[in-house]
């Protein structure tokens, strides 16, 4: 009973290592991370060269950038979370199974003695690593841009309190973690969609469309009753970390919501992937 288990475990780990290294050796992954890193650079440069005074009416946190470079990262993260992050995560998650199937490599992966559930788990974890890599990229690029172009100093929180720069930086990292967790549900949805088809582009598009649909539904007041259960409902809750004291319940709610999506769509992906005929 116990003898094959460690072997399989080790195999899963090495499979995960391979998966992650393959993911981060792809040019596409780097292109997407570069595109994400371009968001804060663009925002920073645009604000640096424009002399228009802030009206307090632009997108959130943009007007705070000129006063404190740390807000480049904050504004970029808030800007990236509705579309840019889901877009890149849709590509990575949609590609997981369908990509292998379209290249004809899925059957070889299944020949390795890892088993389908383990392969599915490895694919999910690989995409999850990207989930966190993406917002961290935005934050790093944002912070570097902010340090280069703008003054930095004590950070003014939404509540009007000021905290030291280091404290603000910690909050920014917590926001990146929040964004990463917020994308896990979408990753599971993408993984499931990816098991349905052999056409990776279709899976990617479907995942992104689902993310957008969820946000559209979240805007309809008539559907207020289902809003708390929508995939994207907690996405913008990351700004609650900029209040004093930070509202950690939002962080917990987000994690629970995403866990729910991971469980449901993980189970669906398991059902589909372990019963499906793999021909390619």
């Amino acid at each position: 009973m116990s003898s094959p288990e460690p072997r399989g475990h080790q195999l899963g780990l090495s499979l995960l290592g391979t998966e992650i290294s393959v993911l981060f050796r792809r040019k596409r992954t780097w292109a997407m991370l570069a595109a994400l890193a371009a968001v804060p650079v663009l925002i920073g440069v645009a604000i640096r060269i424009s002399s228009a005074g802030d009206s307090g009416r632009g997108p959130s946190f943009i007007s705070a950038i000129a006063g404190n470079g740390l807000f480049v990262g904050v504004a970029s993260l808030v800007l990236a979370i509705p579309l840019f992050l889901p877009l890149t995560i849709g590509v990575v998650a949609g590609d997981t199974i369908a990509g292998e199937a379209s290249q004809g490599t899925l059957r070889y992966l299944l020949v390795a003695p890892a088993g389908r559930p383990r392969l599915l788990l490895v694919k999910f974890l690989g995409a999850a690593v990207f989930c966190f890599a993406a917002p961290v990229t935005v934050v790093i690029a944002g912070t570097l841009t902010g340090l280069v172009l703008f003054p930095v100093g004590p950070v003014t929180l939404l509540s009007g309190d000021q905290v030291p720069f280091g404290d603000g930086m910690l909050r920014l990292l917590a926001m990146a973690a929040y964004a990463g967790i917020a994308m896990l549900g979408l990753t599971a949805v993408g993984l499931f969609v990816s098991t349905l088809t052999d056409v990776p582009v279709g899976a990617m598009a479907a995942t992104v469309v689902l993310a957008v649909t969820s946000q559209v539904l979240d805007q309809l007041p008539q559907l207020a009753a289902v809003h708390p259960f929508l995939l994207s409902d907690s996405w913008l809750g990351l700004v609650d970390l900029l209040r004093q004291p930070p509202i950690w319940t939002t962080f917990g709610t987000n994690a629970l919501l995403q866990l729910g999506y991971v469980v449901v769509f993980g189970a669906l992906a398991y059902g589909r992937f372990t019963t499906r005929d793999v021909l390619a």
């Binding site: 399989g8 059957r107 299944l110 020949v111 003695p113 890892a114 088993g115 389908r116 793999v278």
Partner: peptide, 10 residues
């Protein structure tokens, strides 16, 4: 079983 018998998976 799938872990111990590779080709059995398909």
């Amino acid at each position: 079983r799938s872990a111990s018998a590779p080709s059995a998976v398909l």
